[in-house]
C-alpha cells in the first residue's frame, strides 16, 4: 500500500478493492489527544463521513463510492477519484469552477447537509466533473446558521489561500449557490454570514 498523503486528520493510502484502485482513509490515533476524546472523535467522524458521503449521492452530488468501513480501525475504503484538487488548479480554472462549487454546496444545504470543511482541497476535478470529498465534519442540519458557517469557511479560505482571485471566485460561488437555494434562502444565509463575521474578534463595528 502506498501512502498518498498525510492529511490533517487521516492518512490516505492507495490500495485495491475488488481489483480496482481504491483509497484507504485511516484516522489513526493521535498521540497528542486524550485517548478517550480521541477514540470518540475518530469513531464519530468515520461513521458520519461514510454515511453522508453516500447519502449526498442521491441528491446528485458526485462523491467517491464507499466500499468498506472498518469502525475498529476508523478506516474507510472508497473509490479513487484520480483528478486534481481545485486548490492546485490555475487561477483562471478556479474562478471558472467556483460557480459549480457554489452549486454543489447549495445542493447539500438544500437537502439538509452541512459539509463542515469547505476548502478548495476538498473539491476534485476529474473528467470535467467536480467531486466533493472529506465529509468527516459534515452534519445533518437544516439550521440556516449552520449553513452560514459553511459559507463563512469557504469565504475565509478564498480570502486567505486564494487572496488574489478572492473577488471573482466568491462572486461566482454565490451565483452558483443562489441558483440552487433560491433568492429567499440566499438572502437569509448570506445575511447570517455577515452576522457571524461581525462577531469575529476586532471586526469593524459599524
Amino acid at each position: 500500500m502506498k501512502l498518498l498523503k498525510k492529511g490533517a486528520e487521516a492518512d490516505i493510502y492507495l490500495t485495491r478493492w475488488d481489483n480496482l484502485p481504491a483509497i484507504l482513509k485511516v484516522r489513526k490515533a493521535k498521540r497528542y489527544r486524550n485517548p478517550i476524546l480521541d477514540a470518540k472523535i475518530r469513531k464519530q467522524r468515520t461513521i458520519k463521513e461514510s454515511q453522508i458521503i453516500s447519502e449526498v449521492k442521491s441528491y446528485g452530488i458526485p462523491t467517491p463510492l464507499v466500499y468498506y468501513v472498518n469502525l475498529k480501525k476508523s478506516s474507510i475504503t472508497m473509490q479513487e477519484i484520480p483528478g486534481k484538487p481545485v486548490h492546485d488548479l490555475p487561477d483562471s480554472k478556479i474562478i471558472e469552477l467556483s460557480t459549480e462549487i457554489g452549486r454543489l454546496v447549495g445542493m447539500m444545504h438544500k437537502n439538509g447537509i452541512m459539509h463542515g470543511d469547505l476548502t478548495t482541497s476538498n473539491f476534485i476535478l476529474y473528467k470535467n466533473k467536480v467531486y466533493v470529498i472529506d465529509f468527516g465534519l459534515s452534519q445533518k442540519t437544516i439550521k440556516p446558521e449552520d449553513h452560514a458557517v459553511d459559507l463563512r469557511l469557504i469565504k475565509e479560505i478564498l480570502n486567505s489561500a486564494h487572496a488574489k482571485i478572492m473577488e471573482s471566485t466568491w462572486k461566482n460561488f454565490l451565483l452558483g449557490y443562489k441558483s440552487v437555494v433560491g433568492p429567499t434562502n440566499y438572502a437569509k444565509i448570506t445575511n447570517l454570514v455577515s452576522v457571524i463575521e461581525s462577531r469575529g474578534r476586532y471586526a469593524t463595528v459599524v
Binding site: 475565509e156 479560505i157 486567505s160 489561500a161 469575529g200
Partner: peptide
C-alpha cells in the same frame, strides 16, 4: 485578545482559521 492561524501572502497576513467567539 486573539486566537488565530495566519500565513503571510501577498503583503498581508491572511487568516486561515480563528475563533468564532
Amino acid at each position: 485578545g486573539h486566537t488565530m492561524l495566519l500565513a503571510f501572502l501577498n503583503k498581508q497576513w491572511r487568516v486561515f482559521g480563528e475563533t468564532l467567539d
